[in-house]
Nucleic acid binder design. Structure first.
Lengths: 225, 225
DNA sequence: GTCTATAAAGGGATAGAC
DNA sequence: GTCTATCCCTTTATAGAC
């Protein structure tokens, strides 16, 4: 047989920094859905539209890929909160503050609590960030990932307690709300919002003014699986 | 070669109901630590001190084993709450109620909130129950387990909202506290309670009067891994 | 920078003996 | 009721070509 006309398609070349970010974004979505153990490097590769060995080649091991995705996710979350705190303190958020639930109180801490809650809900749009962190939080048994996840959680606690000024009890309460939101998203509760009244009420009470944001986000990214 | 004196040890025989419970308890601990995907049937077998094929033989599939362990865990949790509610309504818990944080209020709902919080902390001693449920809550993507986990969560919500009478918002807040507790246990935060002041304060604010119970439980069951 | 091919190990499930 | 042996598929990671 002679050579056919079929050509092996030339792979899309890309600077490695850019490629890394692409893979990390894919890994965030996949690990966020399936957890560290449940996800495969092949699934990440498919989501990033490259070959499986290349994923491993670039990050060394699956574990290391997870760790880097986790750092990236934590960085984005901390950064979102810090940016918001700066803007609040610079007096640049009066319109946002006006839209807050008045039951949060008129103090700086009360305002920031409301603003951070909203920022948190907005992050759901950034596919997988919060889910990946949640998956890391239930991986405490992993020898390397576990301690890093613990540190990540504590960094979050410190930020909310000190920089946002919620104090220890306020920070604990804030994080509790966050963990419930994560759980409901993980459980895909928004997908049954309309068909299950019980789920609807739970979501409404938990998400409050952020409900519309959360529902929109769940419609925005259809299943990867 | 002739036969040696070494005998194959006769396996310990046991009625299958008893054996099932033994395996389910082991599965609860193992799945609770490592999650559905992260745990192996061999690990469960080892924890139950039987052979791996026998685990599969008895439950059909790993997935089914997880589902049965999940049902058992949910049943224990719902049962603990229901028992407590009955006893409260029968007026048999005055001494317990007296020990509650007065900030919870003097209503039935306030009392039950405090009592259920304590009952929840006590369940940590029952190795893995709460962790297994938590692991199921982050498995929303699994085709069979996911919907079942959602139903489990909603059953819990309904119980707390209606039977305990906390109402929708009270139930959401209660569950949020529970999710944070689960997260901290998963992260093994109690293990660094003494060495990490930040972790210490987070635990104290979250666990409140239940702190001693939680710390004792984490010391009670040393690592399985 | 990216792929194909493949080695090596792990893990769920089945068969069949006792 | 329980075990040993084992099959076969999946998955991580490596080698080497382009």
């Amino acid at each position: 047989m002679g050579t056919t006309g079929i050509q092996t398609p030339t792979p899309t070349r890309m600077p490695s920094v850019e490629r890394r970010e692409l893979i990390l974004a894919a890994a965030t979505a996949v690990f966020g859905e399936r957890g560290y153990a449940g996800a495969t490097t092949a699934q990440v590769a498919k989501a990033a539209d490259i070959s499986q060995p290349y994923v491993v080649r670039m990050f060394g091991t699956k574990e290391n890929l997870f760790l880097e995705a986790m750092d990236r996710a934590l960085g984005k979350l901390l950064n979102a909160f810090r940016t918001l705190i700066s803007e609040y303190d610079a007096g640049r958020m009066d319109s946002q503050v006006a839209a807050l639930d008045p039951s949060l109180g008129e103090t700086r801490a009360g305002h920031l609590r409301g603003l951070m809650g909203r920022a948190y809900a907005d992050l759901i749009r950034d596919r997988g960030i919060l889910l990946l962190l949640m998956q890391s939080f239930v991986s405490g048994h992993e020898p390397i990932i576990g301690p890093r996840a613990r540190d990540a959680f504590l960094a979050l606690f410190r930020l909310v307690r000190d920089e946002a000024g919620l104090g220890p009890q306020g920070a604990s309460d804030f994080l509790a709300q966050g963990m419930l939101m994560n759980t409901l998203i993980s459980l895909r509760m928004p997908e049954v919002f309309e068909t299950n009244p019980l789920a609807g009420e739970l979501l409404a009470c938990t998400m409050k003014t952020k409900l519309d944001t959360v529902l929109a986000a769940s419609q925005a990214h259809p299943r990867i699986d």
